[in-house]
Design a binder for these strands. Structure first.
Lengths: 336, 336
DNA sequence: AAAATAGTGTAAAACGTTTTACATGCTGGC
DNA sequence: GCCAGCATGTAAAACGTTTTACACTATTTT
């Protein structure tokens, strides 16, 4: 367990430390014979390179930090799974940045790339935690990829589904089933995803020539409890909705819970559609109709792009759109 | 954006680099006046210390790695949340080690402490990814804390609930409701938690004088799909269970899904009890009766202990047991 | 046979800090 | 006035690597 370094193995193999280093990093640079001797010595001594030293010298950390509001959220953790997998494959480690929603922590984590603890950032949030003006040249921005639609800076890569179209698809599904009085429970009002989905909702309604009742739109957060509260809210409205579009599956879960508690049947009395298609969605009662996001693929893509960026390969496009899909299960049905 | 180092700020403040370092790390060591000058220079230049250099010099990384089989699992991600919070509070960052169950990755991650990328390990798994004999002295083991009951090495800290008692409590609950034909769907057969919960089950049955039907015990993994499969399995048994004890809430979810699909009502036809009390458990239909584990607290405690260990404070005890609780909801009821 | 080239090895600088050991000037006690 | 002791500052070593520039030998080219 004694710390064995490059120089111990140099001594044992009877060569210089430079040779040892070359033997590892730069095979061709050294004769096969000495290389073998070095490798032997290394394994006899149980050598493990000190990454800190390597990192300092090579000015890279091999880490990427993922800044995410809440890691316990199902959708988020699927994404992280994708991130982890690709990072590992490409030789990077992932540093977890659970911000619990606070901007202070967001900055803290973002600072890790300045302090060289990380080489790049995957951002699952809408604020850019630096002071970046839209006119800041991209060379001055550290490697960063956003995992959602992102409006902050045109040069920042982002990968996500087409939220607006998603919102439209969900709405059209309800419209096709004959619903006209459609309630909406949104996510965080300031998030781009909420804004875009809402646009999609309005556009679909307009195209169908159905008037939107603003009273039936409840703005909230993306969490379960919010779904419960919002559903109750909706039930006391003068005009009761016959269908509810929830901007996340967790919201839908909370929503259905409230509806059941109030004696309504889903979908017989009220249809509910969600968004995300988290792993549990098919186990809800009733199994949830929802817009599926390819969470893991989003995570994977973000990571591939980020690492490309770190390694100097900037893609031609800045905006990557992954396909979503309407998944019809049993929480929605034709209006009588 | 130019990289500014300690020597730039030394130059600007007209002092030596040693003084700059002291001004930061070691206030009293330097006069207030120069200290102020240094600090001013630093902020004017927008200085951020290069952590890699600091780490190399001070021989610590400020990282802990958490080795966990699947980060997308609800119970696991709650734990991670706890870990993150404490780590942050105490000035550490967390490196994610999602092993996807493979031992190879486990070793890879464990190796991060040898290569100085991390100062310690939180292990949420049952294999120790080093070659440690029970007789290896604790000084030779890197700082490590296990987040479950752990049998590998007596010197390794572990924090968890009392799984055996948990198994007993769940079983007694069913027994008290009059159930005698109790099915069991376990988690990974090799995990200590499964083994201990099973012991608890047997002990409770024995104490109640009820014979265990080995045919009603299905060994599996801790995942939803397994729950579905196992439930179907159980239904074809000659003697059908009137209650099922699932070793995780995810299993219970899958299990109830199968039961519903087969036309059974929970709890009217069959009672189901879970284990963990994940955030979603109260939203299941019916809301799940389960044994609550304090996941976040487990994460927090692990982390406090690990960091103590890293910083040289070894606790008097090696085994930390956190309280669990039976949470009765609506998935269990009195047998007619 | 001299000169260019390829192959192999090494000394030493560098990465950006922290920390040890020493130097200097000053205060005050005698 | 002398010395002890303190307050403040600094030079230089150290952390464990990678990498540059050079040296030497052996081989090939002319």
């Amino acid at each position: 367990m004694e710390k064995v370094g490059i120089k111990d193995i140099a001594q044992r193999a009877g060569v210089s430390i430079a040779t040892v280093s070359h033997a590892f990093r730069n095979p061709g640079r050294v004769s096969d014979k000495t290389r073998a001797r070095v490798l032997a010595a290394a394994s006899e001594l149980g050598y493990t390179p000190n990454q800190q030293a390597v990192n300092l010298r090579t000015a890279r950390s091999g880490n990427i930090v993922v800044i995410i509001p809440d890691i316990a959220d199902s959708y988020n953790s699927e994404i992280i799974k994708g991130i982890e997998a690709v990072a590992r494959k490409r030789g990077y480690s992932v540093l977890l940045g659970d911000t619990q929603g606070t901007e202070e922590r967001e900055r803290e984590f973002a600072n890790m790339v300045h302090s060289r603890q990380a080489d790049g950032i995957i951002l699952m949030s809408n604020n850019v935690p630096f002071d970046i003006q839209p006119e800041t040249p991209i060379e001055d921005i550290p490697p960063i990829v956003n995992g959602s639609e992102f409006a902050g800076h045109p040069g920042i890569l982002s990968v996500s589904i087409d939220d607006k179209q998603g919102g439209k698809d969900a709405t059209n599904h309800l419209l096709e089933l004959g619903h006209r009085d459609i309630g909406v429970i949104t996510g965080d009002r300031h998030s781009t995803s909420t804004q875009r989905r809402l646009e999609g909702f309005h556009e679909a309604m307009q195209e169908a020539g159905v008037e939107v009742d603003e009273n039936l739109i409840i703005y909230g957060m993306y969490e379960v409890d919010m779904g419960e509260a919002a559903a109750t809210e909706l039930l006391v409205r003068k005009k009761r909705p016959t269908a509810i579009f929830c901007f996340s599956d967790e919201l839908a879960l909370g929503c259905m819970h409230s509806l059941h508690a109030a004696g309504f049947s889903v979908p017989d009395d009220i249809s509910v559609i969600g968004f995300d298609d988290i792993a549990f969605a098919r186990y809800f009662s009733p199994p949830l109709t929802t817009i599926a996001q390819p969470a893991e693929a989003i995570g994977r893509t973000c990571t591939e792009l980020l690492i490309d960026l770190i390694e100097g390969k900037r893609p031609k496009r800045n905006r990557f759109i992954l396909p979503h899909a309407l998944v019809v299960r049993s929480s929605t049905r034709q209006l009588d």
